[in-house]
């Protein structure tokens, strides 16, 4: 049971990051390889935010966590926006390799920038803010759910609900869906496609930053390369669920998270990535479009 809860909360975080991959893929048809780095930047930004608040205010209070989370989300969104403007916008409409290569380069640049500018070593999440959450327990069906896990599950649900409301219920969200159906047509009917795409990056980045904040508390330490493997797994989740498909990303994230914790528990954590890779290959063989993906026809 505890394994399930661990797996679910891990999966919820993968789902948050996977959403960013899937949204960008849906609208631009490219793998935003640097998305994992946005997640990492969210982690660092949260620590920076907490440190700045604690220093300037002088005393610490749990509410600072909220402020730091907002700071992290804003900063990561700004990074996401800047990425799109600098490295991707010019490459729209060129061969599929061009934006992908640019994204990989960007991912390396961001990682190494943080390594050089901040540190090569791990940095700690201030324990003061995370400890009460970790120590507080809720017994449930013979397992103990920590307050942090509740927070993770809760905020993931809230963020996803906000996202669903946004894309299904608001004008901008509908514009976004239209743009991912047919970008040219959306532009012709007066949707500001550039801005919608930028917005997609901003929203995806905010979700990733939210995930980053939660993970940084969960793990307690972070390093500049935190986004690489995490991003890879989140992307796997997006593929698993059917890339471009938003509920699919959530489902895929949960499956990946559960699978990872179950493997660690029953086989050994050294094998979890091998199991995940096997799972990805199986899905690609059995259901190339992912679990919830539909067949999309190539326009001829």
């Amino acid at each position: 049971m505890e394994v399930l809860v661990n797996g679910l909360s891990r999966g919820a975080i993968y789902a948050l990051v996977a959403l960013g991959y899937t949204m960008v893929y849906g609208i631009l048809g490219m793998i935003n390889f640097a998305h994992g780095e946005i997640f990492m930047i969210g982690m660092f930004a949260c620590v920076f935010g907490l440190a700045m608040l604690a220093t300037w205010v002088g005393a610490a209070s749990p509410w600072m966590l909220v402020g730091a989370a907002v700071f992290a989300i804003l900063l990561a969104s700004a990074f996401g926006y800047a990425n799109e403007r600098i490295a991707y916008r010019k490459l729209r409409g060129s061969h599929i390799l061009a934006p992908l290569t640019s994204a990989i380069g960007l991912s390396i640049v961001l990682q190494n920038f943080v390594m050089l500018a901040v540190t090569k070593d791990k940095i700690d999440f201030p324990r003061y803010f995370s400890e009460p959450l970790v120590q507080w327990n809720l017994p449930l069906l013979g397992a103990e759910i920590t307050g942090l896990q509740l927070l993770i599950l809760g905020s993931a649900v809230v963020l996803m609900a906000l996202l669903f409301w946004f894309i299904n219920g608001t004008r901008l969200g509908i514009a976004m869906r239209a743009a991912s159906q047919d970008r040219l047509m959306a532009g012709l009917v007066g949707i500001p496609v550039d801005r919608v795409i930028a917005l997609t990056f901003v929203i995806g980045s905010s979700l990733a930053a939210g995930a980053g904040v939660l993970v940084s508390m969960y793990q307690g330490v972070m390093r500049f390369d935190a986004g690489y493997l995490f991003g890879l797994k989140a992307f796997t989740a997006a593929v698993l669920g059917g890339i471009g498909n938003i509920p699919g990303a959530v489902l895929g994230g949960l499956i990946i998270g559960l699978c990872e914790d179950l493997t660690s528990y029953y086989i050994g954590s050294d094998w979890r990535h091998i199991v995940l890779f096997g799972l990805l290959m199986l899905v690609l063989i059995a259901r190339p479009r992912g679990l919830l993906g539909e067949r999309v026809a190539d326009k001829v």
Binding site: A87, P99, S102, I104, G105, I108, N112, L116
Partner: peptide
């Protein structure tokens, strides 16, 4: 700076 350089090369060459 090696990797930073490679990353930048990839982005700049594409652009």
């Amino acid at each position: 700076y090696r990797l930073l350089l490679f990353g930048s090369i990839m982005v700049l060459m594409m652009l």
